[in-house]
């Protein structure tokens, strides 16, 4: 499913975190990379509806996302995870995922249970299904966020540094999950991460942002070899 982004412009006072970004995510698992402050999280916040751009459109599956109220976007199929994980401390793992499902899909009690358990299984969380999130370590919390993002039938999944703070081994586990999201629910995954190995492992296609503009896009391998991208990351002058 294509996500067509057209001329997104965001302004906070005199600052332009996004300055006319036009890019089409072709579907599957896509990377969105760039140095710190490039505008990646702002881009996600525009898609989630937390930030209203002064200009631009985001079309997906024939639907304009930006005119939808924020919480209705989740009901339509936009899901996301946050840089600082936001699993709900006071609820059990099951209830965490159920909360997302019951607000984004309709179904009988049995259907709810089935969908939530499927998502938990997909993320390898069935073992801690009934535990309180408060009692769980960081790894599980990250995976709970992932389960919250995939439960039911998401259309666009936004992952904001999902592996931040995880050791390599767990990051690998996570990348397996991320890669299998598109085939599981036919969703387009957009992955923001500083871990290039993770992006390369998960994404065939990537876009690069720098200073709020699109620097490059295309197959991940080509993009990472692009001299413009290299200089943006290494902070060198134009080559």
């Amino acid at each position: 499913m294509k996500v067509e982004v057209n001329d997104i412009r965001v302004q906070f006072g005199g600052v332009m975190p996004l300055d006319g970004v036009t890019v089409t995510f072709p579907g599957g698992t896509c990377g969105l990379i760039g140095p710190n402050g490039a505008g990646k999280t702002t881009f996600f916040n525009v898609l989630s509806g937390y930030v209203t751009p002064v200009n631009g459109s985001v079309r997906c599956d024939g639907v304009e996302l930006l005119t939808m109220p924020d919480y209705k976007r989740a009901r339509w199929g936009v899901r996301r995870t946050f840089q600082t994980e936001q699993a709900i401390e006071g609820l059990s793992v099951f209830d965490n995922v159920l909360t997302v499902y019951e607000h984004t899909a309709k179904g009988s009690r049995a259907e709810k249970k089935k969908a939530v358990d499927e998502a938990l299984e997909f993320c390898g969380l069935l073992g801690v299904r009934d535990q309180l999130v408060r009692t769980l370590p960081a790894k599980e919390r990250r995976f709970i966020e992932m389960a919250r993002a995939v439960v039911g039938s998401p259309k666009v999944v936004l992952l904001d540094e999902p592996a931040a703070g995880l050791p390599d081994e767990e990051t690998n586990e996570l990348s397996v999950i991320i890669r299998s999201i598109p085939e599981r629910s036919d969703a387009t995954v957009i992955l923001v991460d500083h871990d290039m190995a993770l992006v390369q492992a998960c994404c065939e296609w990537s876009a690069v942002l720098d200073f709020g503009r699109l620097l490059a896009s295309g197959p991940t391998g080509d993009v990472l070899r692009d001299p413009k991208v290299l200089s943006a990351y290494l902070g060198e002058d134009e080559l």
Partner: peptide
């Protein structure tokens, strides 16, 4: 419980 912990996260859950 979601709202109390984080409103952005609650919105992202469709609440």
């Amino acid at each position: 419980a979601s709202i109390r912990q984080s409103e952005p996260s609650a919105i992202a859950a469709g609440i």
